[in-house]
């Protein structure tokens, strides 16, 4: 199986690569469109600020490639946010895969949300073997409101979508690669789709 982690300069790429290794798979880092298209599984990471990450993505031309992919694609954290229509952060136009806008947490909360929070209303095969209310590690200031493509929800002040799915595209706001054994199980489920 060929696993590609999209390497466009914005991401905790080593952590994801190592997590995949711990599961007994190998992943390659790439920003090459042909290599990405030919992969069995694609992981689209991202940390940092939305508009600068999108700028880096555009400079590789991959913003045009990602929405056309046919194999399972997993966006993590900012990766997932960039797959949405629009991000409030840096007034950023997204890849329009998920039909929802990303907005900022209310200022009555501590922002960023940092730490372990629960996921529930799990609705996807990527959550096979995962209990409702399992803990995942999250670090983010912007969130995806509840919508039809939500496959998990989390509560921080409000209830929001902490994972999304549309056809072959998956997204998690949390970091499965940093969420202990349960997170690794979700990654494994994705790789075995």
């Amino acid at each position: 199986m060929k696993i590609v982690i999209i390497n466009y300069g914005a991401g905790n790429i080593q952590s994801i690569k190592f997590a995949i290794q711990r599961l007994g798979f190998e992943a390659v880092l790439s920003n090459n469109a042909e290599e990405i298209k030919a992969a069995d599984k694609v992981i689209f990471p991202g940390v940092g600020e939305a508009s600068s990450a999108m700028k880096m993505l555009k400079s590789t031309g991959l913003d045009k490639v990602i929405p056309t992919l046919k194999q399972p694609v997993l966006g993590i954290c900012l990766g997932m946010q960039l797959m949405c229509n629009y991000c409030e952060e840096g007034n950023t136009q997204g890849l329009r895969i998920f039909d929802v806008d990303v907005v900022k947490f209310d200022n009555s909360l501590k922002v960023p949300q940092i730490g372990w929070n629960q996921i529930e209303n799990l609705k996807s095969e990527v959550f096979k073997g995962i209990n409702e209310k399992e803990y995942m590690y999250l670090v983010h200031s912007f969130y995806v409101p509840l919508n039809n493509e939500a496959i998990a929800t989390t509560e921080y002040g409000i209830k929001y979508a902490s994972a999304l799915q549309k056809n072959n595209f998956y997204g998690t706001q949390f970091h499965p690669e940093k969420s202990s054994i349960a997170g690794e199980q979700i990654l494994k489920n994705f790789l075995e789709l």
Binding site: S15, Q21, R22, V139, E177, S179, I181, E184
Partner: peptide
């Protein structure tokens, strides 16, 4: 590098 390789928490 070694920590990231082995440890599955932040």
């Amino acid at each position: 590098m070694h920590v990231a390789e082995k440890v599955n928490i932040p």
